[in-house]
């Protein structure tokens, strides 16, 4: 917000350095950061947004002490299996999940603070050959795991204190699920993308697989980030991290595709290209804004509904950016 006020976006395109570097979290250990996220944290009657950072063997919780200054509240040490990613549970307080594994996710753990014992803890949620995982509102976690014979999809609900409350099995599609995304405004709907480049829709309450819809050859190797239901259509934000780069216009970082769940037909609505011919590396979507790290080492931000790049943060003096996350 501060950067936007300082550097209004020009109508003819992004303005360089319209994102401003505000603060740095200095990790005194030499281990490399693998992921970053945020979590709502309640302490002493006050609920505030805190930052979570993960290295291969530890996950740290940081609180704002003063402008530009962050202090480490706690570190969970997870030394047996490397941490691969943080799995935030949106709008949830005092709970965050992490995925651990070697090349693929082998287990998911819940990190929490227990007021009963006045201590920070972690507990095992799930093990297996986990292909995709997402945290949903209302303390829910959905994951897909694969054995040689079959694919299993499961939603776990947590209690406020982090106990496992309920487990719901979801009907798996034939193809491996590569990513999940919540449908904004529809608590019981979930979308996913598959290795066969389809978008699938589930009813989370019943576990039913409602529809499988082909994304099409124009949108290869799609990964879903977010979905919105509006006017009888399902708008899905996709990225294509493994797509071959087109020489003419580069590769779009994000696309918005409209699906009619009744007929399974789809139409491209908007695409968001990097400001220069660079490729998308990884990114994050929040509401209708996308942010991604590009091969140039810059971070770009888009208004996904207008397909317009609204801000660029060039690589810093210390090197290329590696991750971009909304909070």
């Amino acid at each position: 917000d501060v950067a936007e006020q300082l550097s209004p976006v020009l109508p003819d395109g992004p303005r360089e350095e319209s994102l401003q570097f505000l603060s740095e979290l200095k990790d005194s250990s030499c281990s490399c950061a693998v992921d970053v996220s945020t979590v709502w944290w309640a302490a002493a009657g006050c609920r505030e947004l805190r930052v979570v950072t993960a290295s291969e063997s530890a996950v740290s919780l940081w609180e704002p002490l003063a402008p530009d200054c962050w202090g480490r509240v706690h570190t969970w040490h997870l030394t047996e299996i490397p941490v691969i990613q943080i799995v935030p549970l949106p709008d949830t307080c005092n709970l965050v999940c992490v995925a651990l594994g070697e090349l693929e996710i082998g287990e998911i753990r819940l990190l929490l603070y227990s007021s009963e014992t006045d201590s920070f803890k972690h507990s095992l949620v799930k093990t297996g050959n986990i292909k995709a995982v997402v945290g949903l509102k209302d303390r829910r976690l959905v994951s897909s795991s694969r054995t040689m014979q079959e694919q299993q999809l499961e939603m776990v609900s947590f209690s406020e204190t982090g106990g496992s409350k309920d487990r719901q099995t979801l009907m798996p599609p034939e193809e491996t699920v590569t990513a999940f995304a919540e449908v904004e405004g529809m608590r019981e709907a979930l979308v996913g993308t598959t290795a066969g480049n389809s978008v699938v829709v589930w009813n989370l309450k019943t576990g039913q697989l409602l529809r499988k819809m082909q994304v099409g050859y124009s949108y290869p190797a799609s990964i879903c980030h977010r979905a919105y239901s509006d006017s009888g259509l399902l708008f899905v934000v996709l990225s294509h991290p493994h797509a071959k780069e087109s020489e003419s216009c580069g590769s779009p970082a994000f696309r918005v595709v409209a699906f009619n769940p009744r007929t399974g037909r789809s139409a491209g609505v908007m695409f968001s290209c990097p400001p220069c011919p660079r490729r998308y590396l990884e990114g994050d979507v929040w509401d209708t804004a996308g942010a991604a790290v590009l091969t140039s080492g810059a971070v770009a931000v888009w208004d996904l509904l207008r397909g317009r790049c609204t801000a660029v943060l060039p690589p810093g003096p210390a090197g290329h950016w590696a991750l971009a996350r909304w909070a």
Binding site: M171, M186, E188, A189, V201, N203, T206, Q208, L209, L210, R211, S229, S231, G232, L233, L234, A258, F259, N260, P261, R262, T263, R265, S266, A267, V269
Partner: peptide, 23 residues
Amino acid sequence: CSESDLGPISLNWFEELSAEAPP
């Protein structure tokens, strides 16, 4: 997007598909 591209649209698609899909 028009109905000619995407076919007939239903505002209650989620409830309708849930009623039709196998349990």
